[in-house]
Amino acid sequence: MTICAYATSAGADDDEIAPVLAAWREVGIEGRAERWDDPGVDWSAYDAVVIRSVWDYVPRREEFLAWARGAESVTRLLNSRAVLESNTDKTYLRDLDVPTVPTHWSSRGLPDWPEYVVKPAVSAGGRDTTRTTDRAEAQTLAAALEAAGRTPMVQPYLDMVESEGETSLLYFNGRFSHAVRRNPVLAPVLDTGQAAGEPPRVHTRTPAPDQVELAEKVLVAVPHVLLYARIDLVRLPGGGPAVIEVELTEPYLFLNQEPEAAARFARALRELL
């Protein structure tokens, strides 16, 4: 029997653990959820460690990456340590040779945009992210990140997210599984009648051909095997799709929105093992 760890974190409200472990059992993989930072876990006892809801890594990134290096020295890590090291810092967006959301990486010389989104390059789930129409405030927020030794990301707020939403395309072992339309953290409205502060309504979505083309260009550019990948796209004012984020570390996979998704994820893991 193949045994794999599902790497999670303390207090993670992860409703994908149960369906994933059940799907793994169907393909002959015994799965156990383990906290990545639990010093009592013997990672060498596992055939592979699948990185999932390690959502507390952001303020402990160096500790997390040190753990990943240690775990990968005794077992297989999916996604790999090299992927985690590059993907946990969003400066990777500067190296993508595809359309991305315009990003200014400094507190100095901010472009003149109607509205700004300011966030650190190492972040997750909208943490330390602010939306403002005040250019001076955006500059102050970015400068505060720099003063704390963090790289700021300053982006224009795109009104398209309020009507179009973000499109997230999910891939398992390089194959498309499903896509969803979801509400970015700072958008006030997702669907008619949904107010700010309500839980986001997520729906499956058939991605447009230009979105699929862009997502697959991104995947081809990653020089590593990927058990899972989530490519988050938004449309720019001109109508073309752009990458807002490439989630290769700990993305929520929206398995509950697509009946066959957990089974596809399990089959992809079985193939890689």
Score class of each variant (00 low, 15 high):
T2S: 12
I3Y: 13
C4S: 08
A5S: 09
A7V: 12
T8S: 13
S9M: 08
A10S: 14
A12L: 07
D14E: 14
E16G: 08
W24T: 02
W24A: 06
E26S: 12
E26K: 13
V27C: 06
G28L: 06
I29L: 03
G31Q: 01
A33K: 04
P39E: 03
D42W: 00
D42E: 10
D42F: 02
W43V: 01
Y46I: 02
Y46R: 01
V49C: 06
R52A: 06
D56I: 02
Y57I: 00
R61M: 05
E62R: 14
E62S: 12
E63G: 13
F64N: 02
L65G: 05
A66M: 09
R69I: 03
R69L: 11
V74S: 13
T75F: 12
R76W: 11
R76F: 10
L77C: 06
L78A: 07
V83I: 08
S86V: 15
T88M: 14
L93E: 04
L93P: 04
L96W: 13
V101P: 06
P102S: 15
W105G: 07
W105S: 02
S107V: 08
R108G: 12
R108C: 10
W113K: 10
Y116G: 02
Y116P: 03
V118F: 03
A121F: 05
V122P: 01
V122R: 09
A124E: 01
A124Y: 09
D128R: 12
T130R: 04
T133K: 15
D134C: 04
R135L: 02
A138Q: 00
T140Y: 10
L141A: 06
A143E: 09
A143W: 06
L145N: 00
A147Q: 13
P152D: 05
V154H: 00
P156L: 06
D159C: 10
M160N: 15
M160L: 15
S163H: 15
E166D: 10
S168G: 07
F172I: 02
N173Q: 07
G174H: 07
R175A: 12
S177L: 08
S177H: 02
S177Q: 05
S177M: 03
V180E: 01
L186R: 01
A187P: 03
L190M: 10
L190R: 05
Q194M: 11
G197C: 04
R201W: 07
R201S: 11
R201I: 13
R201F: 10
H203L: 14
H203V: 14
T204V: 13
T206A: 14
P207K: 10
D210G: 05
Q211T: 07
V212S: 12
E213K: 11
K217L: 15
L219A: 04
L219F: 06
A221K: 09
A221P: 01
H224E: 13
Y228T: 09
A229C: 08
D232M: 01
P237T: 12
P237R: 11
G239L: 07
A242P: 05
I244T: 12
V246L: 15
T249M: 12
L253M: 15
F254I: 03
F254Y: 14
L255S: 05
N256Y: 14
N256F: 13
N256I: 09
N256E: 15
E258D: 15
A261M: 06
F265K: 00
R267D: 07
A268N: 00
A268I: 02
E271W: 14
L272M: 15
